Computed example of a mutant assay.
Amino acid sequence: MSKLVVRAFSLSLDGYGAGPDQSLDNPLGVNGKKLHEWAFATRTFQKMFGQDSGETGVDEDFAARSFENIGAWILGRNMFGPVRGPWPDENWKGWWGDTPPYHVPTFVLTHHARAPIEMKGGTVFHFVTDGIEVALEQARAAAGGKDVRVGGGVSTIQQYLRAGLIDEMHLAMSPVLLGKGENLFAGIDLPALGYRCTERVPTANTTHLMIVKG
């Protein structure tokens, strides 16, 4: 059965999934890039940027697993770009250039309608204005029985958590303190929502946590 999953989502030790003040120069917020250093070094992520290199080992294993059996993605508006409010034009097509790393239908939550964008490599961005449940319904239909991955950001994951719709999460807790930004756990009572940690795997660069519902 298709699952709704969060995978390879990096957090600071104090629970922040992004730094403050996201901008074109800081797409992950100030100091947010530090959260993802474990991933940037892996073979999976190096390959995404056209490099035939990268580390193997436990971090690579989790990075590779994060893309397995994914038939569709869901992203918040901030994950798609820094543009706020109504779309001023059709020029902004994401942070990733002509070939985004998704390669499947990808559903972007927004309050402002926009026509779908077909990109190279199989990614098609669909813009959903009717809320998280409709986005999930459309993503599941597009996924064809495979899993749907919520890529973020923090606010989007929180909405799906509060609704009890996420089946499992892989969080990568990096040895970094941000102090401010977007805190994934703010206002979230995971045990009360039925979530529990089933796996903890430390490495030199992060600690991988598997959290499941039920």
Rank of each mutant, 00 (worst) to 15 (best):
E90S: 15
G152V: 14
G144Q: 06
I157G: 01
P88C: 09
T123M: 04
A113S: 07
E168A: 12
T123K: 04
I74R: 06
R114S: 03
V83N: 02
G97I: 03
V154H: 08
E137Q: 08
A163P: 01
A139R: 00
F62R: 09
M173C: 12
K120R: 12
P101Q: 06
G71N: 01
A115I: 15
V108L: 07
I132C: 11
G144R: 08
W95A: 01
T106Q: 06
K146V: 02
V124D: 02
F107L: 11
G76C: 05
L161H: 03
D130Y: 09
V154I: 11
F125K: 11
D61Y: 08
A63V: 09
N91K: 14
V134I: 08
I74A: 04
L109M: 06
D98P: 07
A141T: 12
T99L: 14
V124G: 05
R162D: 04
Y102F: 14
W95P: 00
M79W: 12
K120F: 10
V128A: 10
A135L: 03
V124W: 11
K120I: 09
E133N: 09
T99E: 09
W73N: 10
G94E: 02
G131V: 04
P88T: 15
G94L: 06
Y160H: 12
G164D: 10
D98M: 12
G121C: 08
W96S: 03
A139V: 01
A135S: 03
A113E: 05
